[in-house]
Design a protein around this nucleic acid. Structure first.
Lengths: 152, 152
DNA sequence: TTGTTGATTGGACAATGTCCAATATACCGC
DNA sequence: GCGGTATATTGGACATTGTCCAATCAACAA
């Protein structure tokens, strides 16, 4: 149940991923990617911005938003669907889903049985699905064990 | 592919659903439910608020937010997961999923093969899933046909 | 090294959702 | 039907999130 460690991209690999989309490897983009990877888990743009500021890296808020969108297009960052509200990002490229715990409010990664998109098919009558993100809502393992312990 | 028409709840049925959760049937709650049902599709709280205002029904914005949350708990309204941003609601209780079209930006309902929650199971090692919402991203039928027509 | 093109900056702005105390109303028992 | 009481509504202030813009800066190809 440990969070999968996001792979550590070399600068060259990051530059490659960006350039495939006609994007440059800039200092802010490198910093945003590293911050997201080092923070781990599911983070909002402003969390990344705050982490960079705390580390003494001055980057404008707009740039963080832009960089995350660019890294997303480049495929080295993913958006974690977790319902409405602010957008959450995470480093890494492995396709997976999420469990939202209604007890602790946490988000757990759930590996995708297929591991690549789209993992579920859509009846052709509706159109073409390029990806299928599943949001499980319920109670995470940790909280479930907490409940059980209390009940005794 | 027509949108399923949301069932028309009688006041008694609506009151029943609310009271099961210790909630009262109030004029604003009735108005919000009717507005959402009559608008059809996937609507934000402020869209419902605007529709009510346009129809001459004065209800405070806060009340619309509260009413939608209450109707959601009562099970007569659902939240349509459509990624980050504002929350979208729709009338009705039948469990289903959504296809987000990246061409036109629209949201299509996709019936759930099981029709009730949870339609997908979660490996027990992760916890208990009470519901599983699938977000398909791709191209809707209408846009797919548009593409095909242009290519000729 | 230099020029060109794309990226960053920072401030202003819009949209969405939440908090609060005062007031109004649904609904229970009579 | 008539209160009494717990619940709901109100409206304004506020926080958070994300976007827009023109001026400046920097990546990278030649």
């Amino acid at each position: 149940m440990d969070a999968p460690r996001p792979e550590r991209l070399t600068d060259a690999a990051l530059a490659d991923a960006l350039r495939r989309g006609g994007l440059r490897l800039t200092r802010p983009r490198r910093a945003v990617h590293a911050a997201l990877r080092d923070l781990g888990g599911h983070r909002s743009a402003d969390e990344v911005h705050a982490a960079l500021a705390a580390a003494g890296t001055r980057v404008s808020r707009m740039t963080v938003y832009n960089a995350l969108a660019d890294l997303l297009r480049a495929g080295v960052v993913q958006r974690a669907d977790a319902g409405p509200g602010r957008a959450l990002f995470e480093a890494g490229a492995a396709w997976h889903h999420h469990l939202l715990c209604r007890t602790c409010g946490g988000i757990e990664d759930v590996p995708c049985v297929r591991g690549r998109r789209p993992c579920l098919s859509l009846p052709a009558a509706f159109g073409r699905a390029e990806e299928a993100q599943v949001i499980f809502r319920g109670v995470c393992r940790r909280c479930l064990e907490g409940e059980r312990r209390k009940r005794r």
